[in-house]
């Protein structure tokens, strides 16, 4: 689904990482870990076409990212749900409108999707907050709303960048449970996190692969976690 082949990324004259290869196969569950500044977020951005590799090839659903125009990337992103650490909401829209944003941008009738929207908000535990605006939500609520928005289009892949970065342990567990449920529904999951406890907890519940970005290279993490 998403393949990075011998990819490198440089900016400002420095190389962030190089010779990175990985493949996200359908239904797989991956963690991407590594120290701060190692390039986890950048690697995720390569996976959804936000950035292009400076060397190597990034293939998104079989298509070389370099050959894509802006609108092609937009179409690809409808198949990839992204959860950012800072959530990236439009503050003038309600929670429901934010979650429905991917539907609006594709011309779907949001009113006709209200039942699905309500179900989705119930699934992430935000039914009561449906009419609130993003600044009125707590960190955990925002993360769950971002997850709801990421999956509203029923994407094949979900990329989460430090989804538990701003929430307490209980909320981290709740979010992880939601992501594991999605994986069991057949979704491909890649979570970038520096939270090793989260990874250890997840490994007891789901078959997952852990990748570590360190010293400008991507390594498969072993039992040292």
């Amino acid at each position: 689904m998403i393949e990075l082949d011998n990819v490198a990324y440089s900016y400002g004259g420095g190389e962030l990482f190089s010779s990175v290869s990985m493949s996200l196969s359908p239904g797989s569950f991956h963690f991407l870990t590594g120290p701060s500044g190692a390039g986890k977020t950048t690697l995720l951005k390569l996976c959804y076409g936000e950035l292009l590799p400076t060397a190597g090839q990034a293939r998104l659903f079989g298509v070389d990212a370099r050959s894509m125009g802006r609108d092609d990337v937009a179409l690809i992103r409808r198949r990839i749900g992204v959860v950012h650490q800072d959530c990236q909401f439009l503050d003038h829209l309600t929670l429901t409108e934010n979650v429905a944003l991917p539907l609006s941008t594709t011309g779907k009738d949001v009113a006709a999707e209200m039942d699905n929207l309500r179900d989705l908000l119930g699934w992430v535990g935000l039914s009561q907050q449906a009419g609130q605006f993003p600044p009125e939500l707590s960190g955990g609520e925002r993360q769950r709303a971002a997850l709801a928005r990421a999956i509203i289009m029923s994407p094949d892949v979900i990329l989460a960048d430090e989804p538990t970065g701003n929430v307490d342990w209980d909320m981290s567990q709740r979010l992880l449970t939601l992501l594991i449920e999605l994986n069991k529904m057949g979704k491909t999951i890649l979570i970038a996190t520096h939270d090793l406890n989260l990874i250890r907890t997840a490994k007891s519940q789901v078959s997952s692969r852990v990748l570590r970005l360190k010293d400008r290279r991507l390594w498969a993490a072993g039992a040292d976690l």
Partner: peptide, 16 residues
């Protein structure tokens, strides 16, 4: 700018 960034993130094409 933030609105444009978010819209692109959720798959909005330029014409939208």
């Amino acid at each position: 700018t933030q609105v444009i960034r978010v819209l692109r993130l959720v798959g909005a094409q330029d014409n939208f």
